[in-house]
Simulated assay, not measured.
Amino acid sequence: MDIFDLLAEHDYEDLVFIHDGPTGLKGMVAIHDTTLGPALGGCRMYPYAGEHEAVVDVLRLARGMTYKAAAAGLDLGGGKSVILGDPRTDKSGALFRAFGRRLETLGGNYIAAEDVGTSTDDIAYAELETGHVVGRSREHGGSGDPAPFTALGVMQGIRACLGEVYGTPSAEGRTVAIQGLGHVGYHLCNLLHREGARLIVADVDGAAVARAAHELGATPADPDDIIATECDVFAPCALGAVVHDDSIPRLRCSIIAGSANNVLLEDRHGEALAERGILYAPDYIINAGGLINVAGELGGYDEERVRIRVMGIHDSVQRIIALSKRDSVPPHTAADTLAEERISAALSDGRPGTGPAPGRASRLH
């Protein structure tokens, strides 16, 4: 499938390639839908195998942000950016300043934040060239690292799922297998540990696994085998697309609920989970805490207000489960319906403060 076919598949508004020779910047910005407001989404830096792989990733992520913002009740659209490169070796302040200059040319139609492979320090460099960033450090007047709020939202979603499956939201005595011990995954481990959960963890970074074992009493697992671990909850907290034809038969859990984006390789895999009786908490519902946190900067940051809204993810997951049962559809379908109805309502009533950017029309499908 060529790039224009990919854009047409879900009617994206824009795909912008960005390049800066002196700094080596190569990347792209995808804007999916701006019906509810400007597109907001993180900037990911990753050593993609090639441009086509990066395009597929940025488009999938941008569309996910549209649904995440809509379902979270935010007046924001969906977008994402990626930079091709190894964040361990290819970063520089000059590169992120060049990225900021390219963002500025988009006129605020896309707002960037940190993501996999980027940090608040990188955003601070971009901010020297543009005001269209959020997720700044506390020292620069921002909300700081969003990972704790993402983890808090995931924890609330897990509690909602536990309540549905086991009759109580408590994680005490439950076995949770966490795939990925990055910023969010480790914060989630801490929250689960405090509540008395038994932890099984895996990561390609052996030091992170050793730390979790030492500090939290977690049991290490092989990264290739954690998805097949017998557990109550499987929490994917690394890269997405881990639920697919080959992995589904290996699952030995009752619940899938984690911070990773695009956990399902294809929508039909959500249906396969439902057929197996595995409750799936849709990724963009349960991992919205980070987005809620950085979006809080746009109206004057209030940490307590953000915390209350993130805690509400528990109720959001409960609503999705109830809608799923009422309509006899998988949870991911129920979540999509909820998000699409909010966007359709905004289009039909033309509320002030919502709607496409000038010259744009929503084409959400």
Rank of each mutant, 00 (worst) to 15 (best):
L6P: 01
E13S: 04
V16R: 13
D20E: 11
H32E: 08
T34F: 03
T35P: 03
T35W: 06
M45D: 10
P47G: 00
P47Q: 07
E51V: 10
V55E: 04
V55C: 02
A72M: 05
A72S: 15
V82K: 10
S92Y: 12
A94Y: 06
R101N: 02
E104W: 02
G108E: 12
Y110W: 07
A113Y: 06
V116D: 06
G117M: 05
D121M: 04
D121E: 14
G141P: 13
G144Y: 11
G144L: 02
D145M: 09
P146K: 01
P148N: 14
P148Y: 03
T150Q: 04
R159I: 04
L162R: 14
V165N: 11
S170A: 09
E172T: 09
L181F: 04
V184F: 06
H187I: 00
V201N: 03
A202I: 08
V209S: 00
A213Y: 07
G217F: 15
E230S: 15
V233Y: 05
I248M: 01
S254L: 03
A288S: 15
G290L: 11
A295W: 10
G296L: 08
E303Q: 09
L323I: 05
S324C: 01
A334T: 04
T337S: 14
S344A: 15
S348T: 07
D349S: 08
A357W: 06
H365C: 13
